[in-house]
Write a protein that binds this DNA or RNA. Sequence first.
DNA 1: ACAAATCTATATTTCAAAATCTAGCTTTGC
DNA 2: GCAAAGCTAGATTTTGAAATATAGATTTGT
Lengths: 154, 154
Amino acid sequence: MNATDIQSRLTDKTRPVFAIGVASELVGVSVHTLRMYETAGLIIPQRTKSKHRLYSQADIERLQCIRVMIEDRGFNLAGIKGLMSMAPCWEIKGCSEADQAHCDAFKSSFEPCWVVKTKATACQDEICNECPVYRDVTTCHNMKSYLQEHWKNA
Amino acid sequence: MNATDIQSRLTDKTRPVFAIGVASELVGVSVHTLRMYETAGLIIPQRTKSKHRLYSQADIERLQCIRVMIEDRGFNLAGIKGLMSMAPCWEIKGCSEADQAHCDAFKSSFEPCWVVKTKATACQDEICNECPVYRDVTTCHNMKSYLQEHWKNA
DNA sequence: ACAAATCTATATTTCAAAATCTAGCTTTGC
DNA sequence: GCAAAGCTAGATTTTGAAATATAGATTTGT
């Protein structure tokens, strides 16, 4: 591993480094609450081989956004999930019409794509944690601008 | 008034015809709950000269959608309002860049345009109840498709 | 080796949003 | 004219989502 590799590993916000206890302290909620957000479909931490959760810096920021939505804007978990479901994933991933036709995320606006079971081929083997659809949906920022950008570029 | 006019009045879903008590029975919630939804910024019934609320058939359907979001999808009022705020009103209304620059609805994604104070000139004298942005945002339907249509046509 | 941390699953508690109620006044419609 | 319905404003009650706690097994790291 050369110096550039080391630098990139140190600055990679998506690298899973924090155990749930550390993440809990960084975000200011209990470990159980973090597990709850996962069950609700708001966040997908990586897992070690033995199923222990690992959170990245990006995950921490995502969780902080979730807290803002709850505390400052009065959303409940269903509402945050609903807002996240607005991302036009099929445009971002460039799904064909055939792909769209049998993808639950395209057909309904009730669940984010990283939660649905039946997916387009483009997402079959996707690790959602690393997918731009999942990564860029940070509902505490200006979501309308986000949607605009992604529709315009589509 | 000729036959065509009569027909159009009878079938106009936006004509305000139901007092709050009737609306309350049609939707299946108390009159107070209807007033609460109004305070939350989810619906804007017309008013008589003496400030009595009047609901149209379209209003009833809007309210039924709100109930679906609450009962079936678990949203709270803040979440429904947040979802409604996703409509790209400036695209639908064709606002100029100057208009966008001093319109709160363009700048933030926290409130629907029909709730914000500082509006674009295109909306200064708008009766929001009759505006397509307000009318078409029925969050219980496929909101993603709605956004797609409106972005594509923009 | 073993204490601390994490895992899943379930039960219980908390608390604020949502709904209901109250009061005093105005409007509506028979 | 007057009873019924609507208005605003504010207090109170309810209720279920969110958070906390518990239990027993597994993994981690010193």
